[in-house]
């Protein structure tokens, strides 16, 4: 019971802290789910994050797997609700209020000021995943090649991600 309560408030809090999107909150998610509550290990955090990469829709739906791992189907359902419902309600009312601030220069200041903070958080999120996945030269080569190809051409990253997974299997067997 206590477990379900903790899962709920942790993921509700994480969704509200996600300034700049899901990547921004990854370090805090890792800190809370791995180091503070010990629901999963670092390696499981990485594996679950990767599951989100190969599923369609928002990648952060993977949070439900953390709930499932800790508390089964009820955990998955509660984490899904906690991660999406409070944020949807906040967005719903903020959207209706937002129009009132249409001409406010503070609106532009908030966007201008939060933009670099969001970028900093995205770098932190990327760094968190890099520390868990770039374990050797092969991992570094995959990350660099993916970035190079995506900057060079606009192809669907899912194709590259799948190839990377298979390449790493071959590398680890060989």
């Amino acid at each position: 019971m206590n477990k379900l309560v903790n899962l709920t408030w942790v993921f509700a809090l994480l969704s509200i802290l996600a300034v700049g999107g899901g990547t921004a909150v990854l370090p805090e998610m890792q800190r809370m789910t791995v180091h503070q509550f010990h629901w999963i290990s670092d390696k499981q955090f990485r594996d679950i994050y990767s599951l989100g990469q190969v599923a369609p829709g928002p990648n952060m739906l993977m949070v439900m797997v953390i709930g499932y791992r800790e508390a089964g189907a009820a955990g998955a359902a509660l984490v899904g609700l906690a991660f999406f419902l409070p944020d949807c309600i906040l967005t719903f009312f903020a959207n209706r209020l937002w129009a009132r601030f249409a001409g406010s220069p503070w609106r532009a200041a908030a966007q201008r000021g939060l933009a670099p903070v969001a970028i900093g958080l995205m770098i932190s999120g990327t760094y968190a995943i890099a520390r868990l996945s770039i374990l050797n030269v092969m991992g570094a080569a995959i990350a660099a090649a993916t970035m190079g190809i995506l900057l060079w051409r606009h192809i669907n990253p899912t194709i590259l991600i799948s190839i990377a997974g298979i390449a790493y299997i071959i590398y680890s067997r060989w």
Binding site: T23, K43, R46, D47, Y49, S50, L51, Q53, V54, I119, M122, I123, G125, T126, I129, A130, L132, S133, I134, L135, M138, G139, A140, I142, A143, A144, A145, T146, M147, G148, L150, L151, P157, L160, I161, S162, I163, A164, G165, I166, A167, Y168, I169, Y171, S172, R173
Partner: peptide, 22 residues
């Protein structure tokens, strides 16, 4: 180990993707 290897490769590629998006 095959599942884990696949997911490590995926996460490494995601680092490239996240870096590009950032």
């Amino acid at each position: 180990p095959v599942v884990t290897a696949f997911l490590i490769g995926v996460a490494a590629a995601a680092v490239g993707l996240l870096s590009t998006v950032t």
